[in-house]
Design a binder for these strands. Sequence first.
RNA 1: GCGGGCGUGGCGGAACGGCAGACGCGCUGGACUUAGGAUCCAGUGGGGCACACCCGUGGAGGUUCAAAUCCUCUCGCCCGCACCA
Length: 827
Amino acid sequence: MKGRYDFKEIEAKCQKAWSEQDLYSVPDFSDRPKYYCLEMFPYPSGKLHMGHVRNYSIGDVLARFKTMQGFNVLHPMGWDAFGLPAENAAIKHGALHPAQWTYDNIDAMRTQLKQLGISYDWNREVATCHPGYYKWTQWLFLQLYKQGLAYKKKAAVNWCPSCATVLANEQVKEGTCERCKSDVQKRELEQWFFKITDYADRLLEDLDKLEGWPDKVKIMQENWIGRSEGAEITFAVDGMNESMTVFTTRPDTVFGVTYMVLAPEHPLVEKLIEGKEQAGKIRDFVKTVRNQSEITRTSTEAEKIGLFTGAYCINPVNDEKVPILVANYVLMEYGTGAVMGVPAHDQRDFEFARKYNLPIRIVIQPEGAELDPDTMTEAYDGEGLMVNSGAFNGTPNRDGIAAVTRFLEQKGLGRGRVNYRLRDWLISRQRYWGAPIPIVYCDKCGVVPVPEEHLPVMLPMDVAFQPTGRSPLEDHPGFVNTSCPNCGGKARRETDTMDTFMCSSWYYYRYTSPRDEDNAWDHDKVRNWLPVDQYIGGVEHAILHLLYSRFFTKVLKDINLIDNDEPFTNLLTQGMVLKDGAKMSKSKGNVVSPEDIVAAYGADTARLFILFASPPERDLEWSDQGVEGCYRFLNRVWRLVEPLGDSLSGNNINRPATFVGINRDMRRVTHHTVKKVTEDIDKRFNFNTAVSAIMELVNAMYQFREVPETDREPWVMKEAVDSLLLLLAPFAPHITEELWAKTGHQGSIHAQPWPAFDPEAIVEDEITIVIQINGKVRDRMLVPAEIEAEAMKELVMGQNRVKELTEGKKVVKVIAVPGKLVNIVVK
RNA sequence: GCGGGCGUGGCGGAACGGCAGACGCGCUGGACUUAGGAUCCAGUGGGGCACACCCGUGGAGGUUCAAAUCCUCUCGCCCGCACCA
């Protein structure tokens, strides 16, 4: 027995060599076709977790595979390095600056990634908290500002009391902060927004172009954008020079309006109640609702409460006077903040009307049934003919939608309108550790964007971190006080920083020009590399990061900074890593540390297990015994290949003219494995079955080795060994590199071309087919592989066993599937 | 409530509508050993003396010569959204 598999030594040696040779650096332009393989960059939280290992192992297999297939592969890594944890750590540990904390973590995690042997081009590393990066984040803000896509407005926004900052809608999950789970509150604040709603339609329509994205993600984005077609209708307030406009998807039911409802925050409320006896009660109600957290406010179970304002408005289609209410279930943020109540045909309105004894009027009558407002138990939202609707009586309601809209348009009281659930992206954050918004406020000139040549607006390092709930920047006079770029007078800087999702919306462009000091990126390089061919990451970003990135890309295309209109051609969303059926977490105490696994078994084993245990989209159940199994497999490979040394590398190994018997069989397995592994990686991302196939190859090679030496062709063994190492290389890059050298090859295995299979070698002479009688397997037989259906039938019907089993029965039908089976249907 | 996904051995998981359970783990037996938690060989869905045969992919129907796979209904679990007018 020669040397054993010493993964520690091998992995350290390989990583050193790769680094010294700069093996994974990639030129921007090449004769080879380009392939951009990208994994979502991590937040440098401290150390890698198994989810990272899975994400980056998947990406690395693809990157190495595509490189071996002859592509010029861009495979970069960086750090989503601005964010709250750094700042919270500073508040907690006083002495540690967020920058220090972040860069320490980056160093630790970079080391870990290198220990995993991931083939990144580290020359392109970026960190979003570096001034050389956030200069361009700020620059991009200015570009959006120039386009009128960045604006400031006062609005009721989501406030997380624990994170002490506002949040975008996308960052609120079920009324709670997606980061810390605190109940989110509503606050009336002036904040910076990006006009993502301007792109709602394009973001929606272009989902159809994304054939390489999982349907699940596309559906989630579609639902999030939430397009709905309908109409806006304006109702005059009775006796006042005011009006209220509602959005409805059912203008065909407008004759059924029996009341109107305003959101508590609606500006009209105060005007309507002023001087009325209800005023006090309503003001109290509005106050109570406003103080409710998002979660109680929007819960489906929350009781619907409404109060009559004392005011009425006039239904424009029939001049009826209907009461105006204020109710907690109407949201100011959606539509116009006001709705019309049609209890007969909307379930919510129905329940509300029953509760408050509001009239119910049928205006859509289904065919073959008679709705009765007094006896109906739920709203009817199906189709039918319009009734009680004046000139529209008898119109099918589907036609009525357009007809009523047209009628209102003619009278100037309404118009067709498309509404979106998507709201503008709130990007201000009242926190320190982020990119400062490059805006200055001047008493004379107002809001002034920082001139591009003044960028970056540096984030000061000398700030005090106190849990005050205010951004430390506010208390930093040196930062706040500045001069107006316009008039030179005294001015104040914006002290809010940008949402970190802004930093991550464009990093994949920066990788093409990571050190460019004069441009966010080089246009030619971006044109060459983008879009990303394969993007890999967790499904938790289905809406957030992936929607923002699509938005950014469309804006950048519109201002001719890039040519692509979608950022990511193909998307792979990997499943979670579970232990004992649950997500790994400190609180559950079921965390398996990548460091421990790498120390005990090596990076190759860790990678192999994670790829073998489950297909990538599915959740993966961690198994220590499964890891053991992969470690055993690599040892098995080692024991098979290592003792051969360079015995197969000499010139004395000649290719035989023909292959017969056991040699032919071995070759068939080798070439079949090449075919299977290639297809599993390339077409299906089924790394688990690819690894299985490689294991089968190894099993076959062990069998082959047992054959007397006189019967074996060394050339066949050499072919099998070379193929095995090449196929395994993307999965287990270190052991294969070492064995590649030991078996007498020159150069890195990772620079070799991917093996091709010979279709001739896979061809079988004879195959076993299945004989079924009435669909049940009854026998098998060996037939020539190329046999036709008719000949197959004849052969099968001549079998003794078939004769026995069909004796005395009537053969109704015989189905023959060449290469597979014959099914005899008997009675 | 709406939308999406998933249910296959003891476990992770394989199966272009065509042999259910590849591969791995675990388990059982054997070999080699001072030893075995190394390695190698054999077996391993259930029933059954059986290499006959029967049953078997959450459940109930259906389509088909043939269904884990397609269709309908149903149960269970997971994920996303959630008063969106």
